[in-house]
Design a binder for these strands. Structure first.
Length: 961
RNA sequence: GGGCGGUUAGCUCAGCCGGUUAGAGCGCCUGCCUUACAAGCAGGAGGUCGCAGGUUCGAGCCCUGCACUGCCCA
């Protein structure tokens, strides 16, 4: 722990995050603080008997090619806060990190590298290329996790995984084979989304739709044997006409009855195609006649199948026209479109051209326009019941959420999820890539059948032929990441890890991968884990088959102008960059304080600056405290470190600020714990902020200064008690803050213990929980022997009164331009004899905070120029009035207007019999009290205005004519 | 086209079960270098809660419509 210890006098004046963060980040990893050993039965039982549990959370694995962005940082900050919190609360908290092999992205990255050397992957060949990718991964694949380490993520690095690791690949293969055996994986020729740039099929989810202004062309198809007659079709993709096999009309469309069964001449080709009738055709769209191109459109494919038509593929895998396209062969699809249109025009077969907005699909990864393409792919039949009986994968996944076994926050996403699941199609899982899990299927060259096997076969399972070769396609990356919740814990092998850590507790992720990943994990997790018995050998019920019990969907991080961050816009904020400038803690705190469930985050540096100031504030509070610890030591007073670490006990007769700050610590700790339990990060963060700055620094520290007199002749016992509460409260407050600001709190916490901490890290100490302070110290009469006692309420009220009087006097001083440092005399009056007047006994505090040298309680109402009226008391100061008459009149007039409005509204309500009859008594009482206060304030304000008027008329401030 | 959000102070956002006079940070104005902190302290100004109806004793919150805006799906 070199350099960890720090004495107050050694701390620099301003907090410099850069000076400490790297050191602690390394320390946490080096000391293996967050590694979790799989507990044996006894350990687990012990944990549970103490009311704790296992808390498992999976890191959504970033792509190996990835660089950390703000979304990651938000995601990780939230997970880290929750994990640190649960760990400090006593749970066995396991946060499991890893990376995703990210098929397309990684392959693209390495191909780009090769291109710079003037090579293609084909030049290398599959094996060498894959080896090259592995090499790339060994070199650069750890970058994003290194960034994570720098951010202080409290993950268990000993369990780090990579989705292509040996044991995870075994799970992928097992899953594929099992689904195949259950009849849930099939291979077939279908229209898929094809990316001509990536040259692979992609799933429906990987296609993003964009509205685009395009054109709708009408093309005339001559009717064979009826000179001069045409059937006109409308299309947005004219080049595909070369693959037309028919023209379809609605069977009831009268316009086309006469052509049914007739042949049309397909322009630009020498083919003739029939006119067919199909219910799917919408008569009111376009001309009511549609071209049927089964190889290039999913709907046409269905029509073609219904009518037993062939599919003519006119494009190759790069979206260039192929030999089927005749003279257009070799042209790119758009060049072909242009030529086709020109030629149609020349032949007089082009009809009306209309502007048309259509949604075009683009490849999620490279933004290339996707081409619907007929090809042979592998699919998971998610809606099909397995041969062995039971519900389909989608159905199980639906039930998991519908039956509440998985709770999604914010709740609205449950609905989104269920609707998607209700409309889910079969999942295309094959990709024409080289990097990924190769599909464990072998094609027989002899009998043409397929062998799917767990172990690489050497002959065909059907005919025994050795002429077999493995499928060249690999699996969709999401197939392997969808298995993670089961595979990371050892599935399909029986494993203690699985027994202990599955289901995981929570998944924290963004909405963007709800379908990609979350839904797939639910499908695959429920599916495979249901066959794994529980620890005690009993059957696993649905509620324990889920991959996680809760899902928290977080917001999107946008820039300060609410724009989505994107490379093209150039508004991407690099977390590492901003962390360097403000410190990790400040950035984490910014994200946490804005992370309100369901709302996007507009990241603003102004906020981060504010939280850097907050860190500095705490740093300086620490300097102040350490300075006093030193002073006390010189006077022979030591704070016993053994009393640190819990909630501070405080005696009933302790000074007000001590009783108050402990009461606040307890109530704010309760708030923070409650907020974190409901993922209300912003509320938790704001509560800690308010407590530390508003309560601890602004009020408590200012008052406690009065008690820290260690000079000769001072009350040493009182000073020691004050110092002890101060250090105890600060130490507890650091623990309260530490999940949010782990670096700063770690540094200061070690400094509190002066290099002899009771644990290796603040992260391994107990989190402050309300009401535990009292029991630890028997004997003395303690304020906090139980929560919410009368003494606590009284302390809070007394302090609040003190604060209100101090603030009122400060305000009055400002209004009357009393110099900041000048001590003055003050008077307090309360007509209602409220407990407010009791605060005059705190003369020292008033002297220090309000610069009041003397204060008394007046028996009669206060009057004159230097009075300030509050609802339940008045204060006055003795000071030669320097009144800005105009400003004062404006203030009072405004005040009067506000009061009149309030009074009118209150009277209206109180005059309403229905209100009096129906509203709860407590509301009515409250309103009456408030109305009375308003009336009193109005009266006082009226008097003050009158007084002002008299001053003017008597000439005190009258202008000289 | 269908669905789901959002619209509250100059800016970014809170506002929980409908309940008394709607909050915070930043920014702004004023005064202070009060030996923990000027990345600070103290005080202040600033809001018809998008618009129009409705329900209710009572609406920022519930309902209906509209406007603007964002997202998802087709």
């Amino acid at each position: 722990m070199e350099n960890a210890e720090g004495r107050g006098r050694e701390l620099p004046k301003a907090y410099d995050p850069a000076a400490i963060e790297d050191r602690w980040a390394e320390y946490w990893v080096r000391e293996r603080l967050f590694e979790v050993k799989t507990p044996d039965e006894a350990a687990l039982a012990g944990l549970r008997s103490e009311g704790h549990d296992v808390f498992t959370i999976l890191l959504p694995p970033p792509n190996v090619t990835g660089r950390l962005h703000m979304g990651h940082m938000l995601n990780q900050t939230e997970m880290d806060i929750l994990t640190r919190w649960r760990r400090m609360r006593g749970d066995l908290a396991l946060w499991l990190p890893g990376t995703d092999h990210a098929g397309i992205a990684t392959q693209m990255m390495v191909e780009r590298q090769l291109a710079e050397e003037g090579k293609t992957r084909q030049d290398l060949g599959r094996e060498a290329f894959v080896e090259r990718v592995w090499e790339w991964r060994r070199h650069y694949g750890g970058a994003i996790l290194d960034q994570m380490k720098r951010l202080g993520a409290s993950v268990d690095w000993s369990r780090e995984y990579f989705t292509m690791d040996e044991h995870l690949s075994v799970a992928v293969r097992e899953a594929f084979v099992r689904l195949y055996e259950q009849g849930l994986i099939y291979r077939g020729a279908y229209i898929v989304n094809w990316c001509p740039r990536c040259q692979t099929a992609i799933s429906d989810l990987e296609v993003t739709h964009e509205e685009q202004q395009g054109k709708l062309w009408e093309i005339r198809y001559p009717v064979v044997g009826a000179d001069g007659e045409f059937v006109t079709v409308a299309t947005t993709r004219p080049e595909t006409m070369l693959g037309d096999v028919a023209v379809a009309v609605h069977p009831l469309d009268e316009r086309y009855q006469k052509y049914l069964g007739k042949k049309l001449r397909l322009p630009l080709t020498d083919r003739e195609i029939p006119v067919i009738a199909d219910e799917w055709v919408k008569s009111d769209f376009g001309t009511g006649a549609v071209k049927v191109t089964p190889a290039h459109d999913p709907n046409d494919f269905e029509i073609g199948k219904r009518h037993g038509m062939p599919a003519i593929d006119v494009m190759d895998e790069t979206a260039h026209m192929n030999a089927e396209a005749g003279i257009y062969a070799g042209l790119d699809r758009y060049a072909a479109r242009k030529r086709v249109l020109e030629d149609l025009e020349a032949q007089g077969l082009l009809g009306t051209v209309r502007e048309h907005v259509n949604a075009i699909g683009k490849c999620d990864r490279c933004k290339t326009v996707v081409e619907p393409r007929l090809s042979t792919q592998w699919f998971v039949a998610v809606n099909k019941e397995p041969k062995t009986g039971g519900a389909s994968m989608a159905e199980l996944a639906r039930r998991a959420v519908r039956d509440g076994h998985i709770r999604i926050t914010p709740e609205q996403y449950s609905k989104v999820y269920l609707e998607w699941m209700d409309n889910i199609y079969d999942w295309c899982i094959s990709r024409q890539l080289w990097w990924g899990h190769r599909i464990p299927a072998w094609h027989c060259g002899t009998c043409k059948q397929i062998t799917v096997a767990r172990e690489d076969p050497d002959k065909c399972a059907h005919c025994g032929s050795v002429e077999i070769r493995q499928e060249t396609d690999v699996l969709d990356t999401w197939f392997s990441s969808g298995l993670l919740p089961v595979s990371v814990f050892g599935w399909p092998q029986p494993a203690r890890d699985f027994d202990v850590f599955y289901p995981t507790q929570l998944l924290v992720t963004g909405f963007d991968i709800l379908f990609f990943w979350v839904a797939r994990m639910i499908m695959l997790g429920c599916w495979f884990s249901k066959d794994v018995p529980l620890e005690d050998g009993s059957k696993r019920e649905a509620k324990d088959a889920v991959p996680f019990r809760e899902v928290y969907i977080h917001a999107l991080v946008r820039d300060a102008e609410r724009q989505k961050m994107s490379k093209t816009k150039g508004n991407v904020i690099d977390p590492i960059e901003i962390v360097k400038r403000y410190g990790t803690d400040a950035v984490r705190f910014t994200l946490a304080s804005m992370a309100s469930p369901g709302t996007d985050i507009a990241f603003s540096e102004a906020r981060t600056e504010g939280y850097r100031a907050f860190a500095n504030k705490i740093w300086n509070a620490a300097r102040f405290i350490f300075m006093n610890v030193e002073k006390a030591r010189e006077a022979g007073i030591e704070v016993d470190r053994a009393v640190l670490g819990g909630m501070p006990p405080v005696a009933r007769d302790a000074p007000i600020e001590a009783r108050w700050i402990v009461a606040r610590l307890n109530s704010q700790a309760a708030e923070v714990n409650g907020a974190l339990g409901e993922y209300r990060f912003h509320e938790a963060a704001n509560t800690v902020y308010q407590f530390f700055w508003g309560d601890f620094c602004d009020w408590y520290l200012e008052i406690v200064k009065l008690r820290l007199d260690f000079s000769k002749g001072a009350d040493k016992a009182a000073a020691k008690a004050a110092l002890t509460t101060l250090v105890q409260t600060f130490e507890a407050a650091l623990r309260l803050l530490s999940p949010f600001m782990p670096f700063l709190t770690e540094e200061l916490w070690h400094a509190v213990y002066e290099g002899e901490p009771p644990a290796k890290s603040i992260a391994l100490t107990p989190y402050p929980v309300t009401g535990l302070g009292g029991q630890q110290h028997s004997g003395a009469k303690l304020l906090y022997s139980h929560v919410g006692g009368h003494a606590v309420a009284w302390t809070l009220t007394e302090m609040e009164n003190l604060q209100r009087v101090v603030t009122a006097i400060r305000r009055l001083r400002k209004e009357r331009s009393v110099p900041e440092k000048e001590q003055i005399r003050a008077h307090l009056y309360s007509a209602t004899q409220s407990p407010v007047v009791g605060i005059v006994k705190h003369r020292e505090i008033l002297g220090s905070l309000a610069r009041v040298s003397w204060i008394d309680v007046s028996a009669t109402p206060l009057s004159g120029p230097n009075v300030r009226a509050e609802p339940d008391f008045d204060v006055a100061i003795d000071y030669e009035p320097v009144i800005d008459m105009a400003a004062e009149r404006e203030r009072l007039t405004k005040e009067m207007a506000r009061l009149e409005k309030a009074a009118a509204s209150a009277e209206k309500q109180l005059g309403n019999p229905a209100f009096l009859g129906k509203a709860p008594a407590q509301i009515v009482e409250g309103l009456k009290k408030q109305a009375a206060e308003t009336r009193m304030l109005m009266e006082k304000t009226r008097q003050a205005l009158e007084y002002l008027g008299s001053q003017v008329s008597s000439g005190a401030e009258a202008p000289n004519y």
